[in-house]
Write a protein that binds this DNA or RNA. Structure first.
Length: 943
DNA sequence: GTAATCACG
DNA sequence: GACGTACGTGATTACG
């Protein structure tokens, strides 16, 4: 307490703070926001104030050398001041929309710097600062308040200083005197008299700072002044003071900072801690603050992979320097060495190299491992001689050991390597880390290895950042590590001269493959800690991570498709298309390419001069189905025929022809690939081929489903959630009437129709039900009168009335929509029931159209995303439940709200029971979840 | 590589 | 008052 060497940074037994820095976080945000040019993070979020904040914190630590430090924020709501003066800060305009998302980010930044982030409901940051400042002062500490807010100047004493971080200026008693004309202890009285228009503090009208200072100088303090106001010589001033004495006292209460706030965190907890470099770097990198990366690294050191403090301006994560450590593993002893290293450390990054992007046909060529950032090895297993395959160097050195060029390079035998690697990759005590590990798991599963436990950096990245950026390894490396990995093209070439990886010379293969494993491990170290920090543990651990092996299993199984049926359909479609083509050409009076919208538009609207032609934004005629349907309805035959042709063309090219090519010759089945990180809302996607858009709505298209069949002695089971999105809406928006309808098992569209249109359910006109169905869907999509009118082909006015009626029937919907929009505007994302964050693009866009788009997405995302979460839970649970029940039924496909299984005929009924049971209990909502299921010989029959 | 179209939930 | 909009995907084809 008596120690007068405040700048001493040495430790002493005395635990009292010596140098306490209190940062006015809220004040800083606004100033930085207006002072700095606009900046956006890679995902488009505005971040200029966050950037300014980070640089400020860095500098502050350097310049002020604190031993205790905290950042203090305002809370959003009202403060105690509003209790006695409701108008306090009432005229504040809402913050600019570019600033809104930064409030949360600044708190995140504070935590990333490992600093306490302090706020308390009902109190302003200023009061908390005042309380802590006085506490610290009482303990004999020096205090620096980082703020330039004049409201804090009343706190200045010989131990308490302010610091303007933007201007780099210290504010002490002298500066306060300059500003207010009085010493800091009189500042309150000045403010009480002069008021403050910004905060809506009234003060005494007609008295500004100058006059106030004069008066206080003369009368000593506010109370004396008001008591002796009658003595004032200037009549106007005298009257005003007497008249507004009470207002001055209220103002004083408003501007007086509270120094006895019941703070939660004790001052001692502000003891300065070093930030975790990985956490901090990951925060900084993910927001695109590239210029800060090297600063942080040199200041806080960081892990082995980050220590290149002298490499200013160059790639700070220069992997190439350490590439020498990559090892080509060509004999068993070295492989065993790497395996035991991985066993010892408990974590290993794994990557496989193969001959194809398609995991189901790819041949394993090699495996790379990394156990620590900066190290890595590549184990070639299926390389052939590059020269023997031609491609490069054809004809080069023809006489140079021709017989040797056909020999494969030295490598461990594939079977032996698998034998050695299997115990490691299956060891429950060793975490296997991969980038898109599902791919490697599928390849390795064909060699009898079931990789577990696992983490996937691609999935980690998706859970953390959604689709604000891609999750490919090269992109993640550039984003998080500021490093551009060797590209696949560099190694294998592209286009006609592209070679497969088994032809890559071993030295090049080593560089590329080992680097991939190394980078994967580095990414894992950056991303994994963020999962807990950003409260995504539940989403990652219970949904997306456990789903990876489930998807790998489904993709590996594939679904049987009958090539013969597809071929017959193709032929049928081709014949009918040819006939239609001839007819259409005749009608047009000239031949043209039916598949060219451009030519079609010219025929219809230029040559035939049909009415209602509209141009696309590129100036071409619109020839979409809706346009052609309108023309057909007016009795024009050509558009009608063309629609028919288009349907057949689509079915043939996209389905019957394409699907046949996807039948794997080894399995006779079609193996799709599920994208787990492609969809913003958390849904899966399916590609190569897409099995989530197999036709069903049209009679013709539905035939394609007859080609999806079960193995002999088996059946297909299709189980789908009934109205899962509407049920979720009823639950999250708390719509009692909708909940009741579901609880009573009503036909939800009919029930809606009955309520909206006031007609009985019994004997209802199907058209009326259809309208209600469209509204129900519209609600989920963030309804607009225009959209609904378009959907139903009715007037916009009528659509608007329907929507109004709907809102009446189901009160609560509107609130839900408003809340979803508001939340998205504020945070830039919305949340599903299970905590998944869904980034909403454009929600704060200046462009009204893009903003509306964002608003509708904000309404839809929690519902679509929530449904996606639920079926993911079911997918994780069902296979285990089937195993537990001793069943051989296997899950093959997912189509958003539907799961397809293949079951031995004799157990199909039993399997359905288990499947429905699990699906219906995948979530417990305030409405029942219902799964319907069917059995059949084909997908068409099972549905 | 992009735009237009259309298949699905 | 006008603008322009249903939410989320993937595959194919034409075309510059």
């Amino acid at each position: 307490m008596t120690d007068s060497a405040p700048s001493s940074t040495g430790s002493s037994a005395d635990k009292s703070p010596r140098r306490v820095v209190l940062v006015d976080g809220s004040g800083f945000i606004f100033r930085a926001f207006h002072a700095l040019p606009p900046m956006t993070s890679p995902d488009g979020t505005p971040v200029n104030a966050v950037y300014g904040f980070c640089t400020m914190l860095m500098k502050l630590r350097e310049d002020t050398k604190p031993d205790h430090m905290a950042v203090i924020f305002d809370t959003k709501g009202k403060s105690f001041r509003n209790d006695f003066y409701p108008d306090y800060k009432a005229h504040r305009p809402p913050p600019p929309e570019e600033l809104v998302p930064q409030f949360g980010l600044i708190r995140d930044a504070t935590r990333a710097f490992n600093l306490p982030s302090i706020e308390l409901e009902g109190f302003e940051a200023d009061d908390l600062i005042a309380t802590y400042a006085r506490q610290a002062e009482a303990e004999g500490s020096d205090v620096i308040i980082v703020s330039s807010d004049k409201d804090l100047m009343q706190l200045v004493t010989d131990r308490v200083q302010m610091f303007d971080a933007m201007k780099n200026r210290t504010i002490g008693a002298a500066e306060v005197l300059e500003k207010f004309g009085v010493s800091p202890d009189k500042v309150i009285d000045i403010q009480a008299l002069a008021g403050d228009s910004v905060d809506n503090v009234p003060g005494v009208p007609g008295i500004g700072i100058k006059t106030a200072a004069q008066l206080i100088d003369e009368y000593g303090d506010l109370d004396s002044l008001l008591e002796r106001a009658g003595e004032i010589k200037q009549p106007k001033r005298r009257e005003k003071l007497i008249e507004n004495a009470e207002l001055a006292r209220i103002s004083r209460n408003l501007v007086t900072l509270k120094t006895d706030v019941p703070v939660v965190e004790p001052l001692g907890d502000f003891e300065l801690r070093e930030p975790d470099p990985e956490v901090l770097l990951s925060f900084i990198a993910s927001h695109g603050f590239k210029s800060l990366i090297s600063k942080v690294k040199s200041k806080f050191g960081g892990d082995v992979e980050f220590d290149s403090p002298t490499a200013a301006g160059v790639g700070v994560n220069d992997i190439k320097v350490e590439k020498a450590e990559y090892e080509l593993v060509q004999d068993e002893d070295r492989l065993k060495h790497w395996i035991s290293e991985a066993e010892y450390l408990g974590t290993v990054a794994v990557d496989t190299e193969t001959t194809s992007l398609d995991a189901h046909t790819a041949k394993l060529v090699g495996v790379s491992l990394s156990t620590e950032p900066g190290n890595g090895c590549y184990i070639p297993l299926g390389h052939v001689s590059g020269e023997a395959q031609g491609g490069f160097d054809f004809g080069d050195n023809p006489a140079d050991s021709p017989s040797n060029s056909k020999d494969a390079p030295k490598q461990i035998k594939l079977e032996r390597a698998i034998e050695l690697l299997k115990p490691l990759l299956e060891d429950p005590g060793v975490l296997k880390v991969g980038q898109n590990l599902k791919y490697d798991m599928i390849v390795l599963a064909r060699h009898g290895i079931k990789v577990a436990p696992m983490d996937d950096t691609m999935v980690l990245s998706y859970v953390l950042d959604g689709t604000s950026h891609g999750h490919g390894m090269d992109e993640l490396a550039e984003l998080h590590l500021d490093y551009k990995p060797i590209s696949f093209k560099d190694v294998c070439g592209s286009g006609k001269t592209q070679i497969t990886f088994d032809q890559v010379p071993l030295d090049k293969a080593l560089d590329y493959a080992a680097e991939d494993a190394d980078i994967t491990l580095r990414l894992h170290r950056l991303l994994k800690p963020r999962i807990a920090q950003e409260h995504m543990a539940s989403v990652y651990e219970t949904l997306d991570r456990p789903l990876v092996p489930v998807l790998a299993e489904m993709e590996g199984l594939g679904v049987k498709v009958d090539a013969e049926i597809l071929k017959n359909l193709s032929e049928d479609f081709a014949k009918r298309m040819a006939a239609l083509e001839e007819t259409i050409h005749e009608m047009a009076g000239e031949p043209f390419n039916l598949g060219s919208p451009k030519q079609l538009g010219e025929i219809l609207f230029d040559k035939m001069s049909l009415p209602g032609g509209k141009k696309t934004k590129t100036g071409a005629w619109q020839t979409g189905a809706d346009v052609l349907e309108a023309l057909a309805a007016q009795g024009h035959d050509l558009p009608a025929k063309l629609l028919e042709w288009r349907q057949l063309s689509k079915l043939k090219s996209t389905y019957t022809d394409a699907l046949a090519h996807h039948i794997n010759p080894n399995t006779g089945r079609v193996h799709t690939s599920y994208g787990q990180t492609n969809v913003n809302t958390g849904r899966l996607s399916s590609n190569d081929p897409n099995l989530q858009n197999i036709p069903i709505r049209s009679e013709e298209g539905r035939k394609i489903r007859t080609a999806f069949i079960a193995e002999p002695g088996h059946k297909l089971i299709s189980a789908d959630y009934s109205q899962i999105e509407l049920r979720l809406l009823a639950h999250v928006a708390e719509i009692d009437a909708l909940r009741e309808a579901f609880k009573n098992g009503e036909d939800i569209h009919a029930a809606t129709a009955s309520k909206v249109f006031g007609v009985p359910i019994k004997g209802m006109d199907p058209m009326v039900r259809r309208k209600a169905k469209a509204i129900n869907f519209g609600i989920i999509y963030g309804i607009s009168a225009f959209g609904l009118a378009n959907q139903l082909g009715i007037a916009q006015k009528e659509a608007k009335e329907f929507i109004e009626a709907y809102f009446e029937i189901y009160p609560g919907i509107r609130d839900y929509m408003d809340e979803a929009k508001e939340f998205a505007k504020k945070h830039g994302f919305v949340r599903t029931l299970f905590g998944r964050h869904i980034h909403i693009n454009g929600i704060n866009d200046k462009n009204g159209m893009r903003r509306s788009f964002g608003e509708r997405a904000a309404i839809n995302a929690p519902i679509q995303g929530g449904a996606a979460d639920i079926i993911k839970r079911a997918m994780i649970a069902v296979p285990n439940a089937l195993l537990d029940a001793g069943l051989k039924t296997r899950m093959l496909l997912q189509v958003h709200d539907e799961l397809i299984f293949e079951a031995p005929e004799d157990e199909a009924e039993k399997a359905i029971k288990t499947i429905r049971e699990v699906m219906e209990n995948a979530a417990h909502l305030s409405v029942p979840l219902i799964a319907d299921a069917g059995i059949g010989d084909s997908w068409a029959d099972a549905h």
